[in-house]
Amino acid sequence: MTRGARTALFLVAAAVLGPLLWNVFHDIPAFGQIQHLYRDLAVRASLEQSTANVVSSINFDQRALDTLGEESIFVASVTGVMILLRPDSQERRYLPPASGAVLEAVRLVGYLMLPVTLVLGAETVAHGHLTPGGGFQGGVVLATGLHVLYVSGTYQALDRLRPIGSLDIGEAVGAAAFGGMGVAGMAVGGAFLFNLLPKGTLGNLFSAGTVPLLNVAVGFEIGCGMVVLLAQFLAQEITIAKKGRPE
């Protein structure tokens, strides 16, 4: 189908879909209205389980099975990327070229910000049940924080601090820990991913039962997985090339 025909077909479909969407938007509850049934139920359940961050409670306590599915998608996608981007028979890995000079100011800022960012990421993961944050966000902060070393330093420095094999195992350990806690919940409480630890009082660090532990498992998995994912793309650009390339 030519490009023009594709565009014409899309415009016809959009002309049909547009008015349908317009009607639907007038039928659903108005923007900013005060009646939210799910909100009342979810907030009440979260406060009963002594979890201050209701979104974390929903993700890791009330609908934790959903999160197990999401992180399985994550593991599968990272595996798929690793398979698709490995060097094929015509290519091999080279040593990364010596990179140009980095401004001294950039290098200093990088050295200062790297430990700060990693600690911030760990804090976001650990306090996911109290403040906005959690495993998913903290994992992304950890993974991107590590790459400050690449932006303000060299690729060799990043490579030294990034054992891909161990991080791969770490991702699997995080995913397995999530499932393991689910099975433990089944053994204790009779339901998969049952919240089996004592709940504590609202607002303390050790509250909300298994929610902080599941946060740590997911944060570990997402952090390791994202570093592995970005490593595949960086390797494609920097170190993998056809055999016989002049050095």
Binding site: N53, V55, S56, T124, P132, G133, G134, F136, Q137, V140, V141, T144
Partner: peptide, 11 residues
């Protein structure tokens, strides 16, 4: 929605 904002910023 601060949780969602944090997630979107990183990703």
């Amino acid at each position: 929605a601060p949780d969602v904002a944090l997630s979107q910023l990183g990703v």
